[in-house]
Design a protein around this nucleic acid. Sequence first.
DNA 1: CTGTGGTGTTCACATGTATGGACAAAAAGA
DNA 2: TCTTTTTGTCCATACATGTGAACACCACAG
Lengths: 245, 245
Amino acid sequence: MTVRQAAHVLELLEYFARRRRPATLSEVAQDLGWPRSSTFNLLGTLAERGYLYEPRARDGYYPTPRLLALAQSIAEAEPLPEALTTLLRELVGETGETAAIAASAGTSAVFIEVCESLKPVRYFAQAGLRMPIHITSCGRAILSQYRPPERAAVLRRVTYERFGPSTPMSAAEVEAEIRHSLERGWFQNLAEFSQDLCGVSLPLPLAGRQLALVVAGPISRMQDRIPALAARMRRGLERALPAGG
Amino acid sequence: MTVRQAAHVLELLEYFARRRRPATLSEVAQDLGWPRSSTFNLLGTLAERGYLYEPRARDGYYPTPRLLALAQSIAEAEPLPEALTTLLRELVGETGETAAIAASAGTSAVFIEVCESLKPVRYFAQAGLRMPIHITSCGRAILSQYRPPERAAVLRRVTYERFGPSTPMSAAEVEAEIRHSLERGWFQNLAEFSQDLCGVSLPLPLAGRQLALVVAGPISRMQDRIPALAARMRRGLERALPAGG
DNA sequence: CTGTGGTGTTCACATGTATGGACAAAAAGA
DNA sequence: TCTTTTTGTCCATACATGTGAACACCACAG
């Protein structure tokens, strides 16, 4: 079950992040397609808690910096090492493709840090992007770090839907692909999830966290250089995290 | 009407901001006093949208940096000049009291930037703190910048509740206090809202925004130096915003 | 291996809430 | 100035949703 009004809060914040200026009740209602009365209640609730204010009289509401303080406090607590974000930038520079760090969320993989390629045709992604954990290179790189029973539990809850000809359709197939990848030394995904998308990933254990490093881009540019990319990523990881893994 | 689940989202984020480490479903449910099933739905909704992830397998959820990206995008759009935040720090250093920038939100004044005093007894405040607009020095400093009909509209919607012996109990009294303050050259509040609290404020018009600069602290430390504080604040503003008002 | 305590998940129904409609107040237009 | 349109606010009720209770699963202890 999805909690509608919780989702609406996020939608509203995203709306302001796009808009970047105050919005009146009517504007919000119109742009987000909500009834005016509901919008009234929602804005009122956020304002009541000190998350919205009026920069100018009668010119609409805008979020207070309170949200920023909140987010900063949250983000500072589980920081990624500087060296890793540097590595992402390096990889984008050298490979020309989008690089990211991924973690799990239920049966999904989520990007928690992204550095986008600058090419006109590229993998468009941002922090928070979710994808099925079992049919992405980074998802399987994460799963490979789980203990067998934990991994089995996740794979049991996954829904096996066909996105393309190579999409694995059972827990066994995913397990096999993970075994194969571990032997090979890297994880990959050739259009299993999205038609033109190819990803290369490495497991990234960090202070007990099961993360993954991933480079992804259009299949046409990626296909022929997967081993080279994987080697480059491994070298980068070894330099960034000398502790080894 | 208050939108319960919208408030719950904020509560949850505040919870993580305090906690600064992942929390399992049960922990959230227990700490926030929510039913487990409701907590399940709420966490699911946020995770589904990419705002929560699992840093470690089976060790609970934590917000993704997506929230930070959102908040940064929002905050960058309506920035306060660097000079103003510097001024707040200066004022705290010189006066020893808490300094802040306030704006309006309906019939409330809201702090949008705070620099807290370091003294053991002090005015404890943070960005997002709300208070009635008509019985605080900063609220009236904001109102003084409104056009008369706009101000009248706000004062009509205010509820006049007695917090202390000097609390104004009608729109007329508030209007009179504003007139008086404009002549005097500063706005002040002596225990109108909170028993031990004294505030001194100046209007702060900035790019069409109706803000206020405020210094506040315990009445015992403030009372005898209000004119001096006001003068110091005025000098600071003139230096920080040479454009004048 | 079996029992025990805890955790995540599902579902039907009672409960609380989203919303259409009505109103008031303020802009905009005539 | 008077009308028209738009905006914010309030409210009762139909309806969506939060939740208690039951279940399945895992981890640990005995």
